[in-house]
């Protein structure tokens, strides 16, 4: 038997085992992807089956009513609008600070001594239980003002948002090839111009996805709002007063003793999920043409 034939015979078992390994890995990955999609569909299906019947126009157009009042249990218009106000206020602070932090970590981090500690703080902050952030908001903005208010709620949500936006922005900017930066610099652009006009736009899709994830996360936060915005049964958009929110409303309804309120809580959860879902789809759709395909 010639040497190549011997080598071929020896190599065959290895080829077979690597093919088995490759196939196994492929099916494991596919199964995981199906599993996670299945979990999402199961959660949505469960919410639809329980809360779907409670979804009606009244839910979006009316205020909550106490038991015994006409129109009980009413709607959650105030909670939906309150959540929008809190999200906008938190985003006004959280998104720019988060994106600027991400830019610093990605673009200036290699030449700054504070980048590594800043990255570490971001990671720690992202892992801090949100109730702790709520207590911080309570101490900083509720106690001095003297009553619960929307600003404190938005502040707490912004604190939750910043590390998520910062780290996702950093990761997305790092994916932009360095060659693009060099090309811009070679054309005479300043570093700031290169970042703002070339690098950031090239990573827009990923950065916005990070922002959406952060918004979805804070939209579903309850604990920090219990210590800060508190909630209200009134229709108010004034952040200097206690502000209603979907999550706190859901919490109150779900922990209430009556079946109508509990069903409405399920409907509220469904609305929350659909809000995040629609927001994600809308942003992805609007960005699909202007985004660099990374990776």
């Amino acid at each position: 038997m010639s040497a190549p034939e011997k080598a071929g015979r020896k190599a065959r078992p290895r080829r077979t085992s690597s093919r088995v390994l490759s196939t196994t890995l492929k099916y494991l990955c596919s199964a995981s992807a199906f599993l996670i999609s299945g979990i999402l569909l199961a959660v949505i299906g469960y919410f639809v089956s329980i809360g779907g019947s409670a979804i009606n126009w009244q839910l979006f157009s009316e205020l909550p009513q106490a038991r015994g009042m006409e129109g009980y249990p009413g709607g959650m218009l105030n909670a939906i609008l309150g959540t929008c106000v809190l999200l906008v206020l938190a985003s006004v602070v959280g998104i720019p600070v988060g994106i600027l932090t991400g830019i610093f970590l990605s673009e200036y981090g290699s030449e700054s001594r504070i980048a590594a500690p800043a990255r570490f703080v971001c990671d720690v902050l992202a892992g801090v239980p949100s109730i702790v952030v709520g207590i911080l908001g309570y101490e900083l903005l509720v106690v001095p003002i003297g009553h619960y208010n929307g600003y404190a709620g938005a502040f707490a949500l912004a604190i939750v948002m910043i590390p998520i936006v910062a780290r996702s922005t950093e990761e997305m900017l790092r994916l932009v090839p360095n060659t693009i930066r060099e090309a811009s610099i070679a054309l005479g652009a300043t570093r700031a111009h290169t970042i703002m006009k070339v690098v950031l736009p090239a990573a827009t899709g990923g950065v916005v996805t990070g922002v959406m994830l952060a918004m979805a996360r804070v939209a579903s936060e309850t604990a920090p709002l219990l210590f800060t915005a508190l909630g209200s049964r009134l229709l108010t958009l004034d952040p200097s007063q206690p502000l209603p929110s979907l999550t706190v409303h859901i919490f109150n309804q779900a922990t209430g003793p009556y079946r109508e309120e509990q069903t409405q809580a399920w409907a509220g959860m469904l609305i929350l999920i659909l809000l995040v879902f629609v927001l994600n789809l809308a942003v992805r759709f609007s960005l699909r043409k202007s985004t660099l395909k990374l990776g």
Binding site: T179, A183, S184, A186, A189, H193, A202, S290, L292, K293
Partner: peptide, 25 residues
């Protein structure tokens, strides 16, 4: 400078690639 791997800005059109520096720099 012209690079081996072109280094065009992939998120811009060809025209935008060319006008970017003249306009902004």
């Amino acid at each position: 400078m012209v690079f081996q791997q072109f280094h065009l800005f992939p998120h811009m059109t060809v025209l935008e690639n060319i006008v970017e520096a003249p306009i902004h720099v």
